[in-house]
Write a protein that binds this DNA or RNA. Structure first.
Lengths: 169, 169
DNA sequence: CAGACTTGAGTGACATGTCACCTGTTTACT
DNA sequence: AGTAAACAGGTGACATGTCACTCAAGTCTG
């Protein structure tokens, strides 16, 4: 539901083909609805947002149970200021804790609090079920594998072109 | 980067397999980065957000150039209050206009202003190029078709299970 | 070492999205 | 008609995300 892919064709602009439009809209629909559904489930069942959950998981999996804020932001593909704001909120709720990095006076390390661990462990089973229910139950193993392969291609392509994008492709 | 798909397996909870985790994370990464990239391009080049653009396109394609607010929200898969807030903002910027529906005293119709049409026509070529550059340039025709087929399956699956989701899948 | 530059983190203002709730209209049922 | 339910839309409070900016600590270079 996003791209004006053909409002009275302009001179040099090749619009998307009908097929491409269909693909693009399916993608948009699925990629906005899946996280919406999962977010609702998580919020209902655990009082966590999908974002909270991502932070909890990433910290939980970090070697030593902690990592730098910038590192966390990189892993989550978030902007640093978003990370900072979100950690403030999670800090207030007692889910995470920050402390100075001994090796680098500029850096802060983040780790889960006990509350954070508990929240994650309570939320995880329901969330995993929801992921399966929303995504994997819809697909054969072969289709799921295809989806993984194709989304990996897209991600790799984004890495390559980095930020070289504006107007003309 | 989202799901804690195996923190010390709990009794009855089947976690995701390693393959499923990889698929899931590729999907998450691609589906969050694609709109981020497109949003930046659009904002830089046209001063429109991706959301503005979606509204403009949908209205532009609507038969008669106008439609009801709820109808618009349904097409965009947005909540109605989100629609309402966003239309307020776009109204203030002179992109859209609302007026009473003659057939139904409850309803409002929305349409593009001249400014809105101009903004869309200026933004469209760059956005289309960006979509192609970000998504279709990464994929063979066959892969793109596969992506369309699979995302359509996911969307259809979401339609079916509607909101029957909470905890156990 | 001084000064310029880079890096890690945070902040305030503002844009956007969600939730619970309100108002006015239409529809359905009796 | 009379009333309950459903519906269209809107609002305020609050959660979240972005942008431009600041500050402090490390790094590099003459």
């Amino acid at each position: 539901m996003s791209a004006a892919e053909s409002p009275a064709a302009a001179p040099q602009t090749p619009w998307l083909t009908d097929d491409q439009q269909r693909i693009w809209r399916s993608w948009l629909s699925a990629s906005s609805r899946v996280p919406a559904r999962l977010g609702h489930q998580l919020q209902q069942d655990s009082g966590l947002s999908l974002q909270d959950y991502e932070v909890l998981v990433t910290l939980n999996e970090a070697p030593g149970g902690s990592c730098r804020i910038t590192e966390l932001a990189t892993m989550l593909e978030w902007e640093r200021s978003r990370m900072s704001h979100h950690l403030n909120r999670m800090d207030k709720r007692g889910l995470i804790r920050r402390y100075a990095c001994p090796d680098d006076g500029r850096a802060q390390l983040v780790e889960l609090t006990d509350n954070g661990h508990v929240a994650l462990e309570k939320a995880a089973p329901g969330h995993v079920n929801a992921v399966r229910s929303v995504l994997f139950d819809a697909l054969s193993d072969r289709d799921a594998a295809e989806l993984g392969r194709i989304t990996a291609l897209i991600a790799a392509h984004l890495d390559n072109q980095s930020c070289t994008l504006s107007g003309k492709g």
